[in-house]
Amino acid sequence: MIPAFDFVILIFVVICAIAAITVKDLLSAVMILGAYSFFMCLMWAEMGAVDVAFTEASVSAGIGTVLLIAAVYRTTRRSRD
C-alpha cells in the first residue's frame, strides 16, 4: 500500500464518477463508467483484494460495460441531463 498512489487513484475515481453522471452523451457516460470501474479495480488490487479486483475487472469493467453499450445501441444515445 503506497498512500500517494492510492490517493491519486482515489481522486481519479471521483473525477470519473462525476464525469459519468454529468456527460450528456450516454455512450461517453458508459465508457467513462467503464474507466471508473477499471480504476476502482486497480485500487482494490493495490489494497490486497485481488479476488475482488479480478471479479470487478471481468464483471463491471467487462460484461457490465458491454451490457450497457448494448443497451445504449438498442435505445438512444441522447439524454437531456
Binding site: F54, T55, S58, V59, G62, I63
Partner: peptide
C-alpha cells in the same frame, strides 16, 4: 470469474 470470461 472463469464463468464470466467464458461468457465473454
Amino acid at each position: 470469474q472463469g464463468g464470466v470470461i467464458l461468457g465473454a
